[in-house]
Design a protein around this nucleic acid. Sequence first.
RNA 1: GAAGCUGGCUAGACAGUCGCCGUUCGCAUUUAACUUGUCAGUUUACUGACUUAGUUAAAUGGCGAAGCCCCUCGCGGGCUUACGCAACGAAGGGAGGAAAGUCCGGGCUGCAUAGAGCAAGAUGACGGCUAACGGCCGUACGCUGAAAUCUUUCUGGCGAAAGCUGGGAAUUAUAAGGCGCGGAAUAGGGCCACAGAGACGAGCGUAUUAAGUUACGGUGAAACGCGGUAACCUCCAUCUGCAGCAAUAUCAAAUAGGCUGGCACUUUUAUUUGUGUGAAGGUACGCAAGUAAAUAAGGCGUGGCUCGCGCUGCCAGCGGGUAGAUAGCUCGAGCGCACAAGCAAUUGUACGCCUAGAUGAAUGACUGUCACCUUAGCAAUAAGGCUACAGAACCCGGCUUACCGGCCAGCUUCACUU
RNA 2: CGGGGCGUAGCGCAGCCUGGUAGCGUACUUGUCUGGGGGACAAGGGGUCGCAGGUUCAAAUCCUGCCGUUCCGA
Length: 132
Amino acid sequence: MARFSLTKQAKLIKTDDFSSVFNFRKRISTHYLIIHYRPGAQGQARLGLVVSKKTAKSAVHRNYMRRVLRELFRLQQHEIGAIDLIIRVQKSFSQTDFMQIKQEFNVLMTKLKQRMQPLIANPDSVSVATDK
RNA sequence: GAAGCUGGCUAGACAGUCGCCGUUCGCAUUUAACUUGUCAGUUUACUGACUUAGUUAAAUGGCGAAGCCCCUCGCGGGCUUACGCAACGAAGGGAGGAAAGUCCGGGCUGCAUAGAGCAAGAUGACGGCUAACGGCCGUACGCUGAAAUCUUUCUGGCGAAAGCUGGGAAUUAUAAGGCGCGGAAUAGGGCCACAGAGACGAGCGUAUUAAGUUACGGUGAAACGCGGUAACCUCCAUCUGCAGCAAUAUCAAAUAGGCUGGCACUUUUAUUUGUGUGAAGGUACGCAAGUAAAUAAGGCGUGGCUCGCGCUGCCAGCGGGUAGAUAGCUCGAGCGCACAAGCAAUUGUACGCCUAGAUGAAUGACUGUCACCUUAGCAAUAAGGCUACAGAACCCGGCUUACCGGCCAGCUUCACUU
RNA sequence: CGGGGCGUAGCGCAGCCUGGUAGCGUACUUGUCUGGGGGACAAGGGGUCGCAGGUUCAAAUCCUGCCGUUCCGA
């Protein structure tokens, strides 16, 4: 039975984790969001969020966007697989745009699955990719 | 009742689903004993069985760490730990009045320090409060402060008149309240545009007088006067050591470098030191050690092997210390209430309470109902907003700035009624 | 957390320290030179000096508090 809890194991915590994902240089972008991804070795999807001060000046507004994205990730984390993700907010959104954000997130997840399919099929290529 | 103003409190509510972060407790499973309950036997007491709940004791159990023991020495096995972590369950807690700006003041920590002074900076009516302040309270002063009131005046209506009433304008003093307050100008220096005869030294012009004796002089903010300006320099009084929780303390990986010890250390050249040959000094030669450069060998990697290519002294320990972890980290000039002192700020006493501690950063997301607001509508209701300003980062006292509303209390003026 | 700079015409900047007139370049408008354009020359318009309060006879300038923007250090 899949649980929906979001623990510390499902987060990117250290600076090395973040920079390794960014250095992998793979990303998918939509109108509001940009996703950087990298196949991870933890056997679990892990999430990092970046909401810069440039997108929204109010801290309350930035916290809202962070929480919504965290919630969406929490509900789908078991369907994603062992991937490290960093979600970046490109354009600010508010509570009226919630349904649109949800759709965009789903689109991003399906795209991500399609791209990760060959990597998961033969794990040797994953190891080669991570070495480089 | 109307108008103006001040202070305090609050910061949508409830329910459902899925979650996040601390704190405390229980850990999960098995066994035994006791208490309670039921049933059976039965001498109002005892025995046996069962189940649920609670308490106590023991054992077993996930990962890691430390210690001990055994051994066939290996990434072995076993035991212990009021050691940690993970996982599970329960209880209880979880953003603000400004958490914001970072403008002042203090605690705390480190460094420095007998004490004092210089420099630099800040403050400046008087008195008080305070841990302290540039803050607060009281008093005095200045500026301001009403469509209300007083006074004057113009005008319209009613009326025989007295008078009543509506509108406009001007003026004066103000209420509650708001804002401000910068000590010293014979201690000294600087500056005072334009205008004006003259701008800080006094002199000049006219009139006058025994006499620089007296009076006046269009301008200008200030004019014939030893003025104004210290939010110009300065002087006086008071205060301030410097830095900031990324402070600071403890533990501590990898890599590079440092120190120590052991092993390895070929040859040549240069140089330094010691020593021998030499009667002595110098020179020369030999030996030993150190340093530098080059080279060979060795080692490692590439590889089935050789050649080749690339890198390079090897091993162990120590100390500093980075990433990281832990502490600092929330019980404090704390909050509530009552009484007392005081005009007040505030202080004292008694009682009660514990109220966020995150660190790539939690305190939430969604749905429904009600409340609130806006629009439409006589209303019922419908649609929309799902609401203001805004998110703790070591902690307090203030100040400033932002802000949709709601509730309560008080003050002043005026009008009406009793 | 600590420290500094900037805000003046549509744009880029002087003036501020040492208070009395707000200016330079460019852009804009008009005119002249040219057959026309470009260019040159001449004239002109355009400023809450970021906002608010204060000191002063007088504030872009001095003082205080805000707002915006930008940079630096730990």
